[in-house]
Simulated scan of single mutants.
Amino acid sequence: MTSSRTRALVVLLASVGLVACAGDAEAPRAALKEDAPLLTAGPVVFGADGLTPPLSIPPFAGASVALWATAEPGVCFSLASLVDFQGRRWVDRREAGPYCLDCGVRTSLAQEEALFVLSGGGGFAPHEGFTVRFGLMACETLTPSSRGAAPRLRLEWRPRPEAPTMRGLLRLRFLVSRHSLLFRQPGRQRELLERLNDELAEAGLGVTLAASVELPDAAPEARFWVTELSELSALVARAPPALDATVDVVFAGCLRYDDPFFGPPVSVEGFTPRVGGGAGPASAVFMPGLRCDGFGADPTNAPMETSARVLAHELGHFLGLYHSVETDGTPDLLDDTGEQNIMNPHPSRAGARGWSPSQRRQMLSHPWVSRVSDPE
């Protein structure tokens, strides 16, 4: 570690009153791969109000920063405060729901661990430094919660530079159930990958297939909700552990979003458990292979172009993008993103195409994207 990085780490640890505790939670898998080492703060304890102490990220040389927050098993939390070094508040409270709608910087609720990628834009400049606090959330109701058994949180962070000209490369691993037309069809898998690269080209992102794993005994249906992901996790668990910084894409059977408050269950075109991806239960992208109106039929034969577009949309979520406009009419915070962008809530529609410059910046800031310099 260089002397400048050592000073930055000292500033960070001093700001949070670091406590050394036996039995600290282990660090998450090494998904943040850069030359700079991870800087660590914690563990810190959620207070009686359900909030952590302020955690300060000092100024750094770079354009974006990845924060990895890890809590104890079964604990849900969200970003409750984000204040830059000029005193401007970008997040000022915990909002009920799976993600905040009124924040100046949008983030998603986390379960046990989360990756927050802050790339700036809209006036927010993370490289100038900022302070964050995290707050407990009730996993059952997605509402702010007070402290129960004094859970702890550990924070790791790493800045990333911004290359003047570059492309990005993302490694995928296909987990293919027998309910998908891709099962034991390497030709179809290659075609999907080619069409997916076509969809992502405008964003400066390419994908490569690291491996393909068969799931012959996968269940024909998986039901899930924001914090009830056990059936999705079970699909991922059928495969050996993935390499670091590799996104699992699970081609499953019928996928049903089973909201306990607003039923009945509905089928989905694709699902990513958490915007930002890379952390928490069922860290993967999920694509359906069966219609949900009966399991006796053959796998759904969706056009390959449509499947590639939906998968590109879901990878956008994994890399930190929200819908260009939510189903309730709430627009994206990215001022250069139109409603008919590929991140429209219905990506299979013919008009939902393309990426904005801000979306490109956000996706390429994700730490799982390898940077490839363009030739001079």
Rank of each mutant, 00 (worst) to 15 (best):
Ser81Ile: 01
Asp244Phe: 12
Leu311Thr: 01
Gly74Asn: 05
Val176Thr: 04
Phe60His: 06
Arg7Pro: 03
Arg160Met: 11
Val45Ser: 10
Gln86Gly: 14
Leu82Gln: 01
Ala352Lys: 03
Arg309Trp: 05
Thr70Lys: 15
Gly338Pro: 04
Gly204His: 06
Glu231Asn: 11
Leu192Trp: 05
Asp49Cys: 04
Ser358His: 00
Val226Cys: 02
Val207Ala: 12
Cys21Leu: 08
Cys254Leu: 11
His323Trp: 09
Arg89Val: 15
Ser307Met: 12
Arg291Gln: 04
Glu26Asn: 05
Asp328Leu: 15
Gly62Lys: 05
Gly129Leu: 08
Met287Asp: 00
Val247His: 00
Leu38Val: 13
Val285Asp: 03
Phe262Arg: 13
Ala210Gly: 15
Cys103Ile: 03
Ala297Phe: 10
Gly354Ile: 12
Asp336Glu: 04
Thr337Leu: 14
Arg188Asn: 13
Phe262Asn: 11
Thr141Glu: 09
Pro159Gly: 09
Leu215Gly: 02
Ala222Ser: 14
Arg94Met: 09
Ala22Arg: 07
Arg133Pro: 06
Arg173Cys: 13
Leu192Arg: 07
Trp157Ala: 00
Ala222Arg: 13
Asp336Cys: 04
Leu243Gly: 15
Gly278Asp: 04
Val268Leu: 10
Asp328Phe: 12
Ser15Pro: 09
Glu95Asn: 13
Gln189Asp: 06
Thr208Ile: 14
Met166Arg: 13
His323Asn: 15
Phe262Cys: 05
Val75Glu: 07
Gly135His: 11
Val45Lys: 10
Gly320Tyr: 06
Asp24Ser: 14
Asp259Lys: 07
Arg5Ser: 10
Pro288Met: 01
Pro375Ile: 03
Phe183Arg: 00
Pro375Val: 03
Pro357Arg: 01
Ser146Arg: 14
Val45Ala: 14
Trp157Asp: 00
Gly62Val: 12
